[in-house]
Write a protein that binds this DNA or RNA. Structure first.
Lengths: 192, 192
DNA sequence: AGGAAATGTAACACGAGTGTTTCTCTTATT
DNA sequence: AATAAGAGAAACACTCGTGTTACATTTCCT
């Protein structure tokens, strides 16, 4: 493995990753040149940091999924009551997914490189749901795999209700997290 | 407008549309040549029927969305009890979406050409949900737009549980339709 | 059977993106 | 201040897909 990167190179790497997200979310077929331009760099430099497009995609996937994993950990998913954890984790995930809509949302950015991180995330999520089930929050016969799938889908849908341009405020995030958790648990039927 | 197509040309058009779906679902970036090959035709012929890639995508979108609209109509969404209609429509939609996973599922196939059909579908869906709400199946304060969004998302997720290769049997479809409707209405909480 | 339409084959020009190289200049690191 | 690493500029070759054309052959339609 090569030695450590110099500070400016490190900055370039981050700039490229963020630029890639911003450009690709609008045009999934955008070129390396467009990405470099957005990052304030030349295409040559982009290629210096990432040998080819696939390498860039892999790095994007790993970076974003790691941030997602961190956001989940920050919600203390297994050291607080399931319902509380569910709300907190949902809020954190919504924020992260909103910042990385392309990388975390588009199948085009789903490289196998980040599979291990993704697996860990899935396990964490299933643990939390299992704990919720033990607390009677979920039905004893509920299919947890299906519930997890639905949970992910609900968060993706909720993203469409975020403001496209600016960063969402805490209230918006909280309202949407509540909507997601409520829908996941109780669906659309009348609350008794 | 040009005169009617000859029978063999008509067959080619259908073959190309079906081939496009089959090829693009595996590789969204597939070339016109690959599509033609799958259809048993030459690239030249593909270009004769569809001037450019966009024209093909538009035709794909219109064709598939029309089939979706027909499948929904076939479920009599407004002449039977909401719960029954919801089940029937869900089953029909699942079948159609399964046959047109790329065209109906990928944002890449979302051209503006089929916007009118899509609008009609959305209205039909909202009508059905509103009728369900009047019957007390949905809470009186439920956000119907959100419910529709969730309904679509649930069906997309359920698709992942269809057999990838072969056509699903009636029982599988029915089981999944039930899962979707149950989840939409009641979520994951214990049934009382 | 005759004419029109459709398809196949084989080219061609074109553009766009990729990946690489070389050289010069700038910046970080110690 | 010296040295090594990084970035910019300007090429180059290469691939791949697209869209078009011309001509020969096959297929449908009446």
């Amino acid at each position: 493995m090569g030695r450590a990167l110099r500070a400016d190179a490190e900055r370039s790497v981050r700039a490229i990753l963020e630029a890639a997200e911003q450009v690709l979310v609008d045009d999934p077929g955008a070129s390396m040149e467009q990405i470099g331009e957005r990052a304030g760099l030349t295409r040559t430099t982009v290629h210096r940091r990432f040998a080819n497009r696939k390498a860039l995609m892999d790095a994007l996937a790993i970076s974003a999924k790691q941030q997602l994993a961190d956001a989940i950990e920050a919600g203390n998913p297994d050291s607080s009551p399931p319902l509380v954890a569910l709300h907190r984790v949902t809020g954190n995930v919504l924020r992260t997914k909103n910042s990385w809509r392309f990388t975390l949302g588009s199948p085009l950015a789903d490289t196998s490189a980040a599979a291990e991180i993704w697996d860990r995330i899935n396990v964490r999520c299933l643990d939390l749901l299992a704990r919720a089930q033990r607390d009677g929050l979920l039905g004893p016969d509920t299919d947890l795999e299906w519930t997890r799938q639905v949970y992910y889908a609900l968060m993706s849908e909720a993203l469409q209700r975020f403001p496209e341009d600016k960063e969402p405020d805490a209230k918006t995030t909280d309202t949407l997290a509540t909507l997601v958790v409520d829908t996941l648990l109780y669906g659309a039927s009348p609350r008794t």
